[in-house]
Amino acid sequence: LKKVVALYDYMPMNANDLQLRKGDEYFILEESNLPWWRARDKNGQEGYIPSNYVTEAE
């Protein structure tokens, strides 16, 4: 899975979204639905995130 790091905080707009915290790492599960990607956080929560809020992890 592709790993990304959040560049900004993101508060979910609806139940399908995943909250982002700046500096945290996330795994990308699906990239087909631009600009929204399906992601999983370190706690196993899954949801959609804005792809322009993250960058690929080193």
Rank of each mutant, 00 (worst) to 15 (best):
L1A: 07
K2G: 04
K2N: 04
K2L: 07
K3Y: 06
V4W: 07
V4D: 00
V4C: 07
V4Y: 09
V5K: 08
V5R: 09
V5L: 08
V5M: 08
V5I: 14
A6E: 00
A6Q: 00
A6V: 02
A6T: 01
A6F: 01
L7G: 02
Y8L: 09
Y8C: 14
Y8P: 00
D9N: 10
D9F: 03
D9A: 04
Y10Q: 03
Y10L: 06
Y10N: 02
Y10E: 00
Y10D: 01
M11W: 14
M11R: 09
M11D: 11
P12G: 06
P12R: 05
P12W: 02
P12M: 03
P12D: 02
M13C: 14
M13K: 12
M13G: 09
M13P: 07
M13V: 14
N14E: 07
N14R: 13
A15W: 10
A15T: 12
D17C: 15
L18I: 05
L18A: 01
Q19A: 14
Q19K: 09
L20A: 01
L20N: 00
L20K: 00
L20R: 00
L20Y: 01
R21T: 14
R21W: 13
R21V: 15
G23S: 04
G23C: 07
G23M: 03
D24Q: 13
D24I: 06
D24V: 08
D24K: 06
D24A: 09
D24L: 08
D24F: 09
D24S: 08
E25S: 11
Y26V: 05
Y26C: 02
Y26P: 00
F27V: 10
F27W: 15
I28V: 09
I28Q: 02
L29I: 13
L29K: 03
E30Y: 09
E30T: 07
E30G: 07
E30W: 11
E31C: 13
E31D: 13
S32W: 09
S32I: 08
N33I: 10
N33Q: 11
N33F: 09
N33K: 12
N33E: 14
L34A: 14
P35N: 15
P35V: 15
P35G: 15
P35Q: 15
P35R: 15
W36Q: 09
W36V: 10
W36P: 05
W36H: 08
W37F: 09
W37V: 14
W37N: 03
R38P: 06
R38E: 03
R38F: 15
R38V: 08
R38Q: 06
A39Y: 01
A39V: 12
A39T: 02
A39M: 04
A39L: 07
A39S: 03
A39E: 01
R40I: 10
R40S: 05
D41N: 11
K42V: 10
K42P: 05
N43G: 08
N43D: 12
N43W: 14
G44F: 05
G44W: 04
G44R: 04
G44Y: 04
Q45F: 12
Q45S: 10
Q45H: 13
Q45D: 10
E46P: 02
E46R: 03
E46M: 06
E46W: 07
E46T: 08
E46V: 09
G47R: 01
G47L: 02
G47F: 03
G47E: 00
G47V: 01
Y48T: 07
Y48F: 13
I49N: 01
I49H: 01
I49M: 04
I49Y: 01
I49S: 00
I49T: 01
I49Q: 00
P50G: 03
P50I: 06
P50C: 12
P50T: 03
S51I: 08
S51W: 14
S51R: 13
S51A: 14
S51N: 06
N52H: 14
N52V: 09
Y53C: 09
Y53D: 02
Y53F: 11
Y53K: 05
Y53R: 05
V54T: 05
T55P: 01
T55M: 13
T55D: 05
E56A: 13
E56M: 13
A57R: 11
A57K: 12
A57L: 14
E58T: 14
E58K: 12
